[in-house]
Design a protein around this nucleic acid. Structure first.
Lengths: 146, 146
DNA sequence: ACCTTAATTTATAATGATTCTAAACTGCTT
DNA sequence: AAGCAGTTTAGAATCATTATAAATTAAGGT
């Protein structure tokens, strides 16, 4: 059985990977092995809410060898490039949301879990103008005792 | 010039102090020297937003001798007894708000300052019900690039 | 393919806010 | 006045996050 190692090695990864690679490039981020692997974990399925520690553990489970520092770096780089959005729910840790569109959140205090609420599910009217400066974003968090 | 040390010592503090003492008692908190002093700083004037570190420094300026641990204890005790409300704006520190009524916030990212928005200034309609559990509270934070 | 360079990764140390500990102290009731 | 549960405290410990500085690697040019 003949095979062509060179071509095998050069063979392109499945579509999902390509997309991730393009996303990174488009964002102006060098698609390193680590960033690609983390981005794949983050963006493979639907929207997610992760913590640095959580993503780090997930990477380990998937035999993705990255340092915790790199997970932090990647999360911040992705956030800076609007691939992620950072959410402050409690002072003890930060969550990162793969949904960067306009939306709000349920926060379940017991479990520490977050759930998206589509923007159209809440009518926010009469938003006051800030005394000065410009509105960067409006966060709405419905805290639920579950 | 005669004076009566015993009576002087026993003399009641001004109204504000009495009120603070009553507030603590009513809340079921023992009115210790430290808690009284901190409560006075917190509730003397209008509504305020403080951090533990900030209140600690303010205490020092006023020659109120309390430890940082006590400031943390007091802030948490007050919050538990609904004399304060804790607000999570960013993951690096907690703010405590002396306004425990229904209201929202402007957050000025540059300065790290918070400003109250009265509840009636924002119309929040169609709030979705949580899938399970009960709504503990709804936070609205308007983040301002100033 | 090979170089060069700047960006990235990494182990590890450092930081900073907060919490814990366990010993000393103090309101409050008897 | 005495005793005790509730508080305070200095200092150590914790935890998430950031900084450091050396090693690695992606990208572009030759």
């Amino acid at each position: 059985m003949l095979h062509t190692p060179g071509i095998m090695r050069a063979k392109k990864a499945p579509t999902a990977d390509l997309t991730v690679l393009e996303r990174l490039r488009t964002a102006g981020l060098r698609p390193t092995r680590q960033r690609l692997a983390l981005a794949k974990l983050l963006f493979a399925q639907g929207h997610r809410h992760v913590t640095a520690e959580g993503l780090f553990n997930e990477a380990k489970e998937h035999r993705v060898d990255v340092s915790l520092a790199t997970v932090y770096n990647a999360l911040h780089d992705f956030t800076e490039k609007a691939l992620l959005r950072e959410i402050s729910i409690d002072s003890s840790r930060s969550y990162f949301d793969t949904n960067v569109g306009d939306h709000y959140h349920f926060y379940f205090e017991q479990s520490g879990r977050l759930q998206d609420i589509p923007a159209e599910r809440i009518a926010l009217a009469n938003l006051p103008e800030p005394p000065d400066g410009v509105v960067a974003r409006v966060d709405v968090i419905i805290r639920v005792k579950d």
